[in-house]
Amino acid sequence: MPARPAYRQPLLLLLVLLGGATGTLARWATGLAVPHVDRVPLGTLAVNVVGAFVLGALLEHLAGRGPDEGRRRALRVTLGTGFCGGFTTYSALANDTDALLRQGLVGHALGYVGSTLVLGLVASALGIATVRRGARGRTA
Rank of each mutant, 00 (worst) to 15 (best):
P2I: 07
R4D: 10
R4N: 12
A6S: 08
Y7C: 07
Y7P: 03
Y7V: 13
R8T: 12
R8Q: 12
R8N: 13
Q9C: 14
Q9Y: 07
L12A: 10
L12P: 07
L13R: 07
L14C: 04
L15Y: 03
L17A: 15
L17N: 00
L18Y: 02
G19V: 07
G19F: 05
G20Q: 09
G20M: 02
T22D: 05
T22K: 02
T22L: 15
T24R: 09
W28Y: 14
T30G: 01
G31L: 14
G31Y: 02
L32R: 11
L32P: 03
V34T: 12
P35G: 06
P35M: 04
R39A: 14
R39C: 06
V40P: 09
V40Q: 03
P41E: 11
P41Q: 11
L42A: 11
G43T: 12
L45I: 06
A46D: 11
A46H: 13
A46L: 15
V47D: 01
N48E: 11
V49Y: 06
V49Q: 08
V50D: 14
F53C: 09
V54P: 09
V54M: 11
V54G: 06
V54D: 05
L55G: 03
L55A: 11
L55I: 15
G56S: 11
A57L: 13
E60F: 11
E60A: 13
E60Y: 05
H61G: 13
L62P: 08
G64F: 13
R65E: 15
R65C: 08
R65N: 12
G66Q: 06
P67N: 09
E69T: 14
G70I: 06
L75K: 04
R76T: 01
R76Y: 07
V77Y: 03
T78R: 04
T81L: 07
G82W: 02
C84N: 05
T88H: 08
T88G: 06
T89E: 03
Y90D: 04
L93Y: 14
A94L: 10
D96P: 10
D96A: 08
T97K: 09
T97W: 03
T97Q: 08
D98W: 11
D98C: 05
D98G: 05
A99F: 08
R102P: 02
Q103M: 15
G104I: 10
G104Q: 04
L105N: 15
V106I: 13
V106W: 14
V106S: 10
V106P: 10
A109K: 06
G111N: 05
G111C: 01
G111F: 00
Y112P: 00
V113E: 01
S115M: 06
T116A: 10
L117Q: 03
L117G: 01
L117K: 01
L121D: 01
L121I: 09
L121K: 01
V122N: 01
V122M: 05
A123N: 02
A125D: 00
A125V: 12
L126E: 04
L126Q: 08
G127P: 02
G127W: 07
G127T: 01
G127Y: 10
I128V: 15
A129N: 03
A129M: 12
T130D: 00
T130F: 04
V131L: 12
V131H: 05
R133P: 00
G134R: 15
G134E: 11
G137P: 00
R138Q: 13
R138F: 01
T139F: 04
A140Y: 02
A140H: 09
